[in-house]
């Protein structure tokens, strides 16, 4: 199957700064690809390159089989981090406006949005604003959906609903490229690409990415002294309720430092732990 989107060794420099460094990635129809990275890793620049808003310094980008052109935008749904909606227009007006711009009909509203259809977006919580932005981005049935931090500020139920909607878009055959730095969301993706300082540091299914990293969980009657000892030895222990977790480490060394009375057992790292271990190498 031909990818909807393909970047080949794409680089973008701003003066001395290399924002995107030789990035290769592909998004196929029906696939949800997560672009995961720290702040300043180059995610937003990469999206701007893909949308054709910036020219690459080197490398090649194919969007629907050709370099990004303005006409391709008709087949792309895009939600920027800031949602890109008009806060002084109502929910219904925002959707009518976007639908008109894409030459399509406004989407049918679900009960939650119907209840607030005539309220200005600026008065509504961020969770609702994100839902409206998503509805606007998919109303023209795009072949490729690009979402920049789509659920930041959204509650747990709102988040699963939004991911359900993202899954439906992919199930209909569209490709989805989604950036996030929350690993709970990254785990929802079919494939993830980890970016650090503009470069790809890992690429694969979430299980493949975490499979390269080891982690341990430490249980002790008192976590506090163990935490202090691990910190002093330069490790990065993370609190997990009343236990501690450490990723990317040698279990024997942690056992030695944790001392008698502590139980140290190997565990599979979360994606977040794997990410931190991979970029800290």
């Amino acid at each position: 199957m031909r990818p909807l989107l393909e970047t080949r060794q794409v680089t973008k420099r701003f003066g001395d700064l290399v924002a995107v460094d030789s990035v290769t990635l592909r998004v196929h129809p029906g696939e949800i690809v997560g672009l995961i990275g720290a702040n300043g890793a180059g995610k937003t620049t990469l999206i701007r390159l893909i949308l054709g808003l910036l020219p690459p310094t080197a490398g090649r980008i194919d969007l629907f089989g050709a370099p990004p052109r303005p006409e391709a935008r008709a087949r792309v749904g895009y939600v920027p981090q800031t949602t890109g909606s008009y806060l002084d227009l109502t929910v219904a007006e925002n959707l009518r406006f976007v639908a008109a711009a894409f030459g399509t009909t406004p989407p049918v509203l679900d009960p939650e949005l119907r209840a607030v259809a005539d309220r200005p977006l600026g008065e509504l919580p961020l969770g609702i604003r994100r839902k409206v932005a998503f509805a606007a981005a998919v109303c023209h049935h795009p072949d490729l959906l690009i979402l920049d931090e789509p659920t930041s500020g959204v509650g747990p139920l709102g988040r699963v609903e939004l991911w359900g909607a993202i899954g439906e878009v992919a199930a209909r055959g569209a490709g989805v490229l989604v950036t996030t730095h929350h690993m709970e969301e990254a785990e929802q993706c079919d494939r993830i690409v980890l970016l650090s300082a503009g470069r790809v540091v890992a690429d694969g299914t979430p299980a493949e990415v975490t499979g390269h990293v080891t982690a341990v969980e430490v249980s002790a009657p008192q976590w506090e002294p163990v935490f202090r000892r691990l910190r002093e030895a330069g490790f990065r222990p993370l609190l997990a309720g009343s236990r501690l977790r450490v990723a990317g480490v040698d279990a024997d060394e942690i056992t030695r430092l944790a001392g008698p009375g502590a139980d140290v057992r190997p565990t599979s790292p979360t994606l977040e732990e794997a990410f931190v271990a991979l970029v800290s190498r």
Binding site: G37, A38, N39, A41, S152, G153, H181, M183, R236, L238, E272, F275, V276, V279, S280
Partner: peptide, 9 residues
Amino acid sequence: TGLDPVSRT
């Protein structure tokens, strides 16, 4: 909120 995993850790 808005922090990457390394800063969050």
